[in-house]
Design a protein around this nucleic acid. Structure first.
Lengths: 206, 206
DNA sequence: GGTGACACGTGACTC
DNA sequence: TGAGTCACGTGTCAC
């Protein structure tokens, strides 16, 4: 590194022109050399950052320079969107039933992380069934929030799936939650209301 | 743009060698042109993604190509760390068992509001029992948070009691939670572990 | 006039 | 062979 070889030792006389002295040629060559080296340093700097990006990305290592940047763009957009969704922690249940399951993929080790949101009428057997769904899908609960208000409930779950069945688990979870919500619709409304008012017994207890 | 000047019109005879015919030179020039244009497209692609990154980044637009990438790296690290912190918020279960029940009295209409926190080893029948306790004490759940980590669980409950039995309900809730935790201690550890590992059946379901 | 950043064209290499 | 990517050296513009 920094091989500052003295360029003045490699001079040679100029016969074509009298205006270009040895020193001016010397300086020109030195300038060119500096330029060359500076450009090389610049390239190295850029590529170093590019490689750091590679290591940060989940899908990492050998990829096109352009497609690497493309995935970085996409990733940045995803993370920004996630930050918005998470900070607006709307834990209060809304009036309309809804299910949302979205992939988060926070972790770089490849394990898929989902955020699932469920909002519906409250009923006492909802939570056990939810737990069974998570268990049967081998989903690990990283974080769970529940809020009830006026007979309605909102659950927000952050779950981790095996890295092998990431997308599969996502769809399974989605359909399971959907059937859970439909089961709620199918159940007798008056029965659910009674269960909500007189909550001190029911099918929950073993 | 796309000035496809026909290179065959600009040929010139070669006197230095007989082996290079016009067609071979033609093809070489065409190849060189293709190469040149392909390289240009590649540069444009990279720069386009770079500009998108610029627009995604919080503050400035005009920045060095290298420092732009540096800030992208930093931003990506920040967002990743932020995501980790969010999933592990303040609700994480601690190593030691604990019960806290404290009066909050948020509401102005006189109804007593408690905040109860419970941290212990996780087991699948914990949540139903917790629900039963709340039901039998006629406590209305305003807000519930649950977090599990490494086989341990933390529950944070915000509950409302009848205005008549405020302090009474508080003490009842405290003792009920205490007995719940002691039941957890008394239960066979291996049984609890088995229930935790094979979670897809059990006493939860009706 | 030196420094830094960029786009360009080209040789080398891979699939 | 051809299409693709990369590193390199150079010309050029701006401060």
């Amino acid at each position: 590194m920094q091989s500052f070889s003295n360029s003045s030792t490699t001079y040679f006389p100029l016969e074509m022109s009298g205006v270009t002295t040895e020193t001016t040629q010397d300086r020109a060559l030195a300038a060119l050399k500096n330029h060359k080296e500076a450009e090389k340093r610049r390239r190295e700097r850029i590529n170093s950052h590019l490689n750091r990006l590679r290591s940060l990305l989940p899908c990492n290592s050998k990829a096109d320079k352009a497609s690497l940047l493309a995935t970085v763009v996409q990733r940045l957009r995803e993370l920004k969107q996630q930050a918005v969704e998470i900070t607006e922690l709307e834990t209060l249940p809304s009036e309309t039933d809804e299910i949302r399951v979205l992939s988060c993929d926070y972790s770089s080790d490849g394990t898929s992380i989902f955020k699932a949101s469920l909002c519906c009428e409250d009923r006492s057997d909802l939570l056990p069934e939810l737990i069974q769904i998570l268990n049967s899908l081998h989903l690990k609960t990283l974080r769970a929030e529940m809020a009830t208000l006026g007979g309605r409930i909102r659950n927000v779950l952050v779950v981790a799936a095996d890295k092998d069945h990431g997308i599969e688990s996502l769809h399974l979870l989605q359909s399971a939650l959907k059937s859970l919500l439909e089961r709620s619709d199918a159940s007798d409304r008056s029965k659910r209301k009674r269960a909500y008012d007189h909550q001190n017994n029911g099918p929950l207890m073993s």
